[in-house]
Structure formats: structure tokens, C-alpha cells
Write a protein that binds this DNA or RNA. Structure first.
Length: 677
DNA sequence: GACTCGAGTCCCGCC
DNA sequence: GACTCGAGTC
């Protein structure tokens, strides 16, 4: 029997069990609820029950996937033999690729490279094309490549797209980068989508096999699909046409990675028989919060006009101006502590939302001092740590010695007598022979200009890696990792590098935590391999950490970026750093076009996370690059409170063209500077 | 070959 | 402020 605690629109969406369905759902209108109820409904449908594992639900973040999984489990009550497949796009692609990637000329045990690895590949690609230093930095190259990949532009097509000198250089490097990746048997994050798309497009057998695994597909946050994701979904759902997508064009915040709102706006054309359901009653926030939200988002030109209707009243949102970012953190944390103590709130009732990953630091310090439990979502800081990256690089080399980036990382860490000059010589030779550097190592002794000592050191390293590589198949991964750490005396290296014993202990603890994660992975995986662990780490951080988070989530103050907060809700929300340059971010301000509109949607996502109470704070001065600098209040504060004129409601001649052109990319000066699209 | 020091640069967001 | 890179020294 269908659930009765739904409003008519929600009920309609939940009980439409076949054919294409578009759910246009504003913030707080029960979107997640509709999706999970619908999954349960499909499984429990009396007339035509669907086997749980024939349902695929796709989300954008791990957090969203976990949450959906949890809610669906609660709803379905008893333990199911098969579970619906609920995963992120990227995990879905990894599974598809594992089955078929050899058809694209990659090894089945491909590795996934993260941001750090990418930089290594980018660096060597730039070296290969002999780009003059400083012309194009590795980071810049990666963002060019990522932008091309997100638009499904392949290396051979990039040159035609390039306009500036930098872009031409980047297109040449893109080809090398992609070759190097392929040689190393590695995919970057964008490749996961791109290769999956290619597989489905070029081989109808593969497409049929993959599409045939499911009878129903649901896609959350459909407004955030990029071209590849859009085509993958089309390819998988084209046969049965049981596709349900939910989304809100006002919450599209991933334009920078190729997301196109057009996909959700075009749904009815793609699937002409599609049913459209609109959810507009907001059950989450007070009328006061929604008044601010509605007023803010109305400043965006390109959108489907809609107004969220509230179902309850509450207090007015507040704006707090505070001296500097340290005081800001102190004030917010003190207030939270006070409300927990005096008003019996729970830590989990609170969220502190920031624009960038660096902002939470000050709040972390304060929260620790106040002894409030908190959870920092995202940031990936653990896997960014030098010692963790080192150990991971060792494990990667052992799993796959041709992993060039990792090999270069550990080749002289700890120092073993292989100098930069030696590395350069080996690299040149590798480029000359067109082979991975690993395959050049045996010839080190014969290379001109390589000192005998260096050649011997290279030989010793090669033998060690080979030995561990051979053992990798036979020995449990944890034992292997421990033996490896002993062999290279990594603990001694930490002692050598960090004179302070607290630092040493903290860094070694991180190494141990990584080994624990490996142990945990081995316990819950039937055929645990080093490669499997590394793949899991690359795609999701590890489950161990997700577990910890889930536990903490039950009662901890949430500290996260606005991007990470999408899809979540909290009783009381603090949006901090409401300043020009932070929100909207200075990069978006200086970028032409609709970049600021996306910042506005980001702000909208933030304010609509709040259920009962919303506080916006700004610091009047903020440390930047080592110096305190005065700030300017965010334009969004004026828009939220009705202190700014909305150009969408005024005649066009009120605009002052040319003013921005003169100020160029500098931050706006005037306090009352009006927002323009 | 390894280490130190000073100059120069600087990452937005996520999987 | 934190980090990387290159020059200079041991």
C-alpha cells in the first residue's frame, strides 16, 4: 500500500512506477523522501514487484549515496537478500569499466589517479613537449584538460578548440598526458566518465549488457549532470525507459565541472512521453528563511521562475559583522556552545557552512577548544598528507611498478643515493625509448653519465620492488604493507625529517591509520588485493572513514563547504565568510559571464539548508597571504535583505554598462555595489 | 648527493 | 602563511 504521509504531488511521483519521470523539486520539498519512497514502492509493488538489485540509483556525492542507502534500508525494514544499487556516477563507472575496459586497450586492473598523481603526469607531459618553464603550470594544464574532458573533447580534437597560446600548448600536452596515462594503465576522474561513455557508444553488446542489468534507473540532482553523465544515463535507460530524474535548476552548482542545466530543461524533449511532477511546498524552512532565499535567487536571470511556499513561521535570519576571522570563529562556536548548554540543542542540530576548504581551520580550532564534537566533511585532508601519499605511492608501485608518478615520488624517499640528476637522466632515456621509466631501470648501469653509485642504488630499488611485487599475489596486503614499511625504514625517515617528537608521532599515526584502513578493507572484502584497496581509496576515500562519519553525524556539529552541504539539512545554520571574494569567490567575480549566478545558487543552496534558524556572518578583516586585509560585505547580503535593486524587475536602462570593464579583475570597491548578471 | 635558505607563487568547489 | 623551487654550501 502506498504511503499516506505524502502530499498529492509527492504521492504522484512516488506512485508513478514506470516510464520516464521528471521531478522538478525545489529545495526542501521532500526530494530525497520521494526518491527513497519510490525505490521502496517499486520493490513492494503488489502487481509487479521489482527485484531490488534491478534498481539503480545514482547520486553525485558519496555522502548522498550513503544517506539514500540508509534511508532506503530503514524504509524497507527487513533485511533484503539483494540490495538496490545506490552509488555515485564515478563508482558506477568503475564497475562498468572493470568489466570491459580491456576493449579500450587498458589493463583490467587499471588504476585511478588523484589530483596529486595528475600533477605528476601533467609535469612530465610538459617536460616532453619541452614547454618553457612558467609558460604553463601543471595545475593550469590539468584544468584545461579537465575542461576539455568534461565537454567530451578528446586529445586529437583539442587543438581545433584551442584559441590562445596557452590553449595550444595545453592541447599538445593533453595528447602526451593521455598517452602517459594509458601507458601507466591509469585513468583520471574525468576518464572514468569519458571511457564509460565511449564503451557504451562504440559497442552495442557492452551497452546491452550494462543496460540489461537494471529495470529502473533513478538519478538525483539531475541538474548537475555533465555531457558524459547525460549520455551514459541515456545509454543505460534507453531500452526500458524507466528513468526517474529529480533536480532543481536553482541548485545547479557544478557548472565548473561541465554540468549543464540544459539537460534537465530538455528532459521532456529527450523523453517525450515523460511525466513531469513539480514539488513546491517546502517543509524544511521557516517562512522568514524562505523569504530571504526567494528574494536572493530571483536575482538570477536564467531560471524557471518558482516560489517556494513555507509551512511554518520562525525568527528572522541574522547577519553578524565581526572583527576578523578568528573572532568570527570564536563568536560562532561560543554561540553554538551556549545554545547546546542552555537550550538543550544537540551538536548535530548545527552546521557551519563555508565557501572554501581552507575556511574551516579556524572553526576546527575553536570547536576543539570548546570540546564540542564536530565532523569535517570533505577536504580529503587525510589523503593529502605527505606521509600518507608517500606510503600510498609505495603500495602503488608494488601493485604496479609501471606507475610512473608513484615511482618518481618514492624513487629517492627516503634518500637512497638517487639524485635529481640521475632521475632526470632516467627520465630522458624513458622518453627517448618511449617506455615507462620502470622499464629503463634495468639498463641504468649502461647509461652514459650515470655514476656507478647511482646505478647501484637504482638496482637495489628495482630488486626490492620486484620482490614485493612478486609477493603481492601471495601475501595478505596488510602483512605486505608492514614488511614494506620496515624494509624502507619509513619510521626512521619521519624521525629524520621532523625533529619535534609530537610531529613524528602524529605523522606515524597517520601511516598506521592507513594500514588500519587496509586491514579493514581486507576484512570486509572476500578477495582482498592491494590493487583493489588502492582503487577504493582513490574513488571514495575509504569506507572506514565513511563509517566513522556516519557515527559522528549522529551527534556532531557539521563543518563543511557549501558544495558538500547540498542535499542536507540542519536545524540551525551558520554561513560564514559572507564577503566579496569568498562568496562570490573572486575567481567568479573576475570571470566573465554567468559565473556569479552560480555563486548565487551556491549561496541559495546554503541558506535553504536551514530549518529553523539562519545566521550569516562576515569578518571585517581577513588574513590573506600572510597579511590582514579589509573585506567588503558580500553583495548577496544586500540581495537577501532587499537592500539591492533587482535588475530583473527594473527597466534595462538602469544598468551602467562599462563600469566593470574599467575596474577589470579587481575586487569591487563600493559597498553598495549592485549585483549584475 | 643531501641539506639550508630565501625568493616567488599561490588551490574554489567534487568524484 | 605555507609551500615549492633553485642556488649555494657542506
Amino acid at each position: 500500500m502506498p504511503p499516506t504521509d505524502l502530499n498529492p504531488a509527492q504521492y504522484d511521483a512516488v506512485t508513478t512506477l514506470s516510464g520516464p519521470l521528471l521531478v522538478l523539486a525545489g529545495a526542501g520539498t521532500g526530494k530525497t523522501r520521494v526518491v527513497t519512497y519510490r525505490i521502496a514502492e517499486l520493490i513492494r509493488d503488489r502487481s509487479r514487484p521489482v527485484r531490488p538489485d534491478r534498481i539503480l540509483a545514482v547520486t553525485f556525492t558519496n555522502k548522498a549515496a550513503n544517506e539514500m542507502l540508509e534511508r532506503a534500508a530503514v524504509l524497507l525494514g527487513k533485511r533484503l537478500k539483494q540490495k538496490p544499487e545506490i552509488s555515485t556516477f564515478h563508482s558506477l563507472c568503475v564497475r562498468i569499466l572493470r568489466r570491459h575496459i580491456n576493449q579500450l586497450g587498458y589493463p583490467v586492473a587499471f588504476s585511478i589517479c588523484d589530483r596529486g598523481d595528475q600533477e605528476g603526469f601533467a609535469r612530465s607531459a610538459l617536460r616532453e613537449i619541452k614547454a618553457a618553464d612558467g609558460l604553463l603550470r601543471p595545475g593550469e594544464l590539468i584544468s584545461f584538460i579537465s575542461r576539455w574532458k568534461n565537454a567530451s573533447i578528446r586529445p586529437e580534437q583539442a587543438a581545433a578548440e584551442a584559441e590562445t597560446d596557452k590553449e595550444h600548448l595545453a592541447s599538445a600536452a593533453y595528447r602526451r598526458y593521455q598517452n602517459a596515462l594509458k601507458t601507466a594503465g591509469a585513468l583520471d576522474f574525468d576518464d572514468l566518465l569519458l571511457c564509460t561513455e565511449e564503451l557504451l557508444a562504440r559497442d552495442s553488446k557492452v551497452r546491452q549488457a550494462e543496460a540489461g542489468r537494471f529495470d529502473h534507473i533513478l538519478v538525483d540532482e539531475y541538474q548537475d549532470t555533465n555531457g558524459s553523465q547525460y549520455r551514459i544515463v541515456k545509454g543505460l535507460a534507453g531500452g526500458h525507459r524507466n528513468l526517474c530524474v529529480v533536480g532543481d535548476d536553482d541548485q545547479s552548482i557544478y557548472g565548473w565541472r561541465g554540468a549543464e542545466v540544459a539537460h534537465i530543461l530538455r528532459f521532456k524533449q529527450d523523453w517525450p512521453e515523460a511525466k513531469v511532477v513539480r514539488l513546491e511546498v517546502n517543509y524544511r524552512s521557516t517562512r522568514q528563511i524562505l523569504d530571504w532565499s526567494n528574494r536572493l535567487i530571483a536575482f538570477n536571470k536564467l531560471r524557471h521562475p518558482k516560489v517556494l511556499r513555507a509551512t511554518c513561521e520562525g525568527e528572522m535570519p541574522r547577519i553578524l559583522q565581526i572583527e576578523d576571522e578568528v573572532q568570527e570563529a570564536k563568536a560562532v562556536v561560543a554561540e553554538i556552545a551556549g545554545r547546546i548548554q542552555h537550550l538543550k540543542r544537540r551538536p548535530r542540530d548545527f552546521a557551519i557552512l563555508c565557501r572554501t576548504n581552507e575556511q574551516p581551520r579556524a572553526f576546527e580550532t575553536e570547536l576543539r577548544q570548546a570540546k564540542l564534537p564536530y565532523v569535517l566533511v570533505g577536504g580529503m585532508s587525510f589523503y593529502d598528507r605527505k606521509e600518507v601519499r608517500d606510503v600510498l605511492a609505495y603500495l602503488k608501485v608494488v601493485a604496479q611498478p609501471t606507475d610512473e608518478v608513484s615511482l618518481l615520488r618514492i624513487i629517492n624517499t627516503p634518500p637512497r643515493g638517487i639524485s635529481q640528476a640521475t632521475v632526470k637522466r632516467l627520465l630522458d632515456e624513458a622518453i627517448h625509448r618511449g617506455k615507462p621509466i620502470w622499464e629503463v631501470l634495468p639498463a641504468a648501469g649502461e647509461l652514459d653519465g650515470l655514476p656507478a653509485g647511482a646505478a647501484q642504488a637504482v638496482g637495489r630499488l628495482r630488486q626490492m620492488v620486484e620482490r614485493f611485487h612478486r609477493q603481492a599475489g601471495r601475501q595478505p596486503p596488510v602483512e605486505l604493507a608492514q614488511a614494506l614499511l620496515r624494509e624502507v625504514a619509513y619510521k626512521n625517515e619521519l624521525t629524520r625529517l621532523y625533529p619535534n617528537s609530537d610531529d613524528q608521532a602524529a605523522r606515524w599515526a597517520a601511516v598506521e591509520e592507513l594500514v588500519n584502513a587496509l586491514a579493514d578493507y581486507s576484512r570486509r572484502t572476500s578477495e582482498a588485493t592491494l590493487a583493489g584497496f588502492l582503487q577504493e581509496v582513490a574513488i571514495s576515500g575509504n569506507e572506514n572513514e565513511a563509517d566513522k562519519q556516519a557515527k559522528l553525524d549522529r551527534d556532531a556539529v557539521a563543518l563543511m563547504t557549501l558544495h558538500a552541504a547540498k542535499g542536507l539539512e540542519f536545524r540551525e545554520v551558520y554561513m560564514v565568510g559572507m564577503e566579496e571574494g569568498a562568496l562570490p569567490h573572486h575567481r567568479s567575480i573576475s570571470a566573465a559571464g554567468a559565473a556569479v549566478d552560480e555563486e548565487r545558487r551556491l549561496c541559495y543552496v546554503g541558506v535553504t539548508r536551514a530549518q529553523r534558524r539562519l545566521t550569516l556572518t562576515l569578518a571585517l578583516s581577513r588574513m590573506k597571504w600572510g597579511k590582514p586585509r579589509p573585506t567588503i560585505p558580500s553583495r548577496f547580503l544586500y540581495e537577501l535583505t532587499g537592500k539591492a535593486d533587482n535588475p530583473n524587475y527594473l527597466s534595462a536602462k538602469r544598468g551602467v554598462p562599462g563600469r566593470e570593464a574599467r575596474t577589470g579583475s579587481r575586487e569591487p570597491r563600493g559597498k553598495n555595489r549592485r549585483a549584475r548578471g
